[in-house]
């Protein structure tokens, strides 16, 4: 156990090694480790944030889905209502048209009847004249008696 110059030589080499370690070894390693630590922390934060975003997106989707369903049922209701309305309108139009056709037919028929009556009247008048001629066997002034016969026919 001789204490000698080795003591100071060791002191110097110790100092050099500590200096070297402090300058070239420690800072880059610690820096890299801190950087990695930060990256990992950032990554974890990002993952957490993404999870939260996903949650929010899910909620949004749910809300949109509900809204879409409501809208769809509303549209369906409207469509149903509109369809009923169209049917009603069509029914009404058909009824009106039917009525109109019926009225037209009615008036046609009445006209036909009137015309037939007119013809009939005319024919009855002439028949009556002919009959009267035959009955009287005499020549009657057709012009003089025509008014009387027509009046008669008009009463038919």
């Amino acid at each position: 156990m001789n204490i000698n110059l080795t003591l100071f030589a060791q002191l110097i080499s110790f100092a050099i090694f500590v200096w070297f370690c402090k300058t070239y070894v420690w800072p880059p390693i610690i820096l890299a480790m801190q950087e990695r630590q930060k990256q990992i922390a950032d990554g974890l934060n990002a993952a957490e944030k993404a999870g939260q975003d996903l949650e929010v997106a899910h909620q949004k989707i749910d809300a949109q889905l509900v809204e879409a369903k409501a809208q769809a049922s509303q549209i369906l209701d409207q469509a149903n209502k509109r369809a009923a309305q169209i049917v009603d309108e069509a029914k009404e139009a058909a009824l009106t048209e039917g009525q109109r056709l019926k009225d037209a037919a009615q008036s046609d028929i009445e006209q036909e009847v009137n015309r037939a009556k007119e013809q009939l009247r005319a024919q009855v008048a002439s028949l009556a004249l002919i009959g009267a001629e035959k009955v009287l066997e005499a020549s009657i002034d057709e012009a003089a008696h025509k008014d009387i016969v027509n009046k008669l026919a008009a009463n038919l």
């Binding site: 880059p28 820096l31 480790m33 990256q39």
Partner: peptide, 14 residues
């Protein structure tokens, strides 16, 4: 020690 650790320090990345 210095050589091996300095080598690792040089290669150290995040």
């Amino acid at each position: 020690f210095c050589w091996s650790f300095a080598r690792a320090a040089k290669a150290a990345t995040s």
